[in-house]
Write a protein that binds this DNA or RNA. Structure first.
Lengths: 149, 149
DNA sequence: CTAAATGCAAACCATTTGCAACGGA
DNA sequence: TCCGTTGCAAATGGTTTGCATTTAG
C-alpha cells in the first residue's frame, strides 16, 4: 500500500499537480476496495469517512489513478464504468452470465503465457489485458430447464 | 446471409414482432459492415440507402439483433457502444495500442480451447468472449525511443 | 381492425465542465 | 502570492422513452 501511495504522489509531483487530503483519502479507500467499483460506489465509501469530498473529485482522481497505472477501467453493459486496482489482488479473468450478471473469476497460466507469446510476435509491449467469457451460468441453465418443462 | 435473415425473421415471429422494411434494411446493411460499428455509423450507412429510417429505430433494431445472437455489443472507452456480427468474419481477439489506438487482430487455437475447458469446469455455457490485450505497439515504442533520445 | 412499429422531440443519466471560493507549495 | 483544486450546478452526449401517427398481419 505504501508503494502505491508513493507511486501516486510521485506522479502528482512530476505532472505538477498537488497532493491534497481528498486525493490521499480517495486513493486510500480505493486501495481497500476489492474487485470492480464504480465512481458511485467509491463516492459512498469515501463520503462515509469524509463527508466533505464531492462526486466530481472522485471522477477527477480516478482519472489520475488510471493515468499512473494504479487503476484500470472497464466499461460494463449497465452503463457504469468500473475501476479496479491490482494491489493485494492477483490478476484474474471473468466468466460473465448474460442472464443474471454473475461474475466468476478464473486464472489460467496457459492463457497468460500464450498472450505474452502473441504480444512478442507482434513486437507489442503489453501493459494489461481483459478476457471476458460471456454465456449462461450453471444456475440460470437450471432455471431455463425448469421453465421449459 | 440468407441464413442470418431467416434467423432474424424467425426471432421476430416467435416474439410476436413484425417484419418491417426498416428492420430488413438495417439487418442487411449491418451484415455488410466489417468490424465494430456504432449506432451512429450504422445510421449513416442505412440513411444513405433509405433516408426515412430514424435513429431510434437503429437502436431498437440493434437491441433485437443482440437478443437473437446476430449482433454482439462491446462498450468502448470513447463512450460509444459498438456492434459486430460473426457473418463472413471468423472470430478473433485484439491487441490494442493505448497510445495510437491501433487494433491488431489475432487468433489462437490454444487460448480458444483453454477457454472452453475453463467454461466446462464451471458448468458455464459460453456464447462468446472478448479478449483484449492493451499496451504499446511497435511503432509507438519506436516513437517513444526517438523522443527520449 | 388492432396491436406493434416508427420518428420526432423530450427525457435520461453517467460523466464532464465552468466558475467562484479555497488551499497547497 | 500564485496557480492548481474543490464542490456545486449546469452542461454534455450517447442512449432511451412518450406519444401521436403509420403499418403489418
Amino acid at each position: 500500500m505504501e508503494k502505491e501511495k508513493e507511486l501516486f504522489f510521485e506522479h502528482l509531483k512530476t505532472e505538477g499537480f498537488k497532493r491534497t487530503t481528498q486525493r490521499e483519502k480517495i486513493l486510500e479507500v480505493f486501495l481497500r476496495t476489492e474487485g470492480h467499483s464504480s465512481a458511485e460506489d467509491l463516492y459512498a465509501l469515501v463520503k462515509a469517512e469524509d463527508p466533505t469530498v464531492g462526486f466530481t473529485t472522485i471522477y477527477r482522481t480516478l482519472k489520475l489513478l488510471t493515468e499512473c497505472g494504479l487503476a484500470r477501467q472497464e466499461k460494463f453493459a449497465d452503463g457504469y464504468t468500473r475501476y479496479e486496482h491490482s494491489y493485494n489482488h492477483q490478476h484474474h479473468d471473468h466468466l460473465i452470465c448474460t442472464q443474471c450478471g454473475t461474475l466468476i473469476e478464473f486464472y489460467s497460466e496457459v492463457i497468460e503465457n500464450k498472450q505474452d507469446e502473441i504480444a512478442r510476435k507482434f513486437k507489442f509491449q503489453p501493459t494489461h489485458h481483459s478476457l471476458r467469457i460471456f454465456g449462461i451460468c450453471d444456475q440460470c441453465q437450471a432455471k431455463r430447464q425448469a421453465v421449459a418443462s
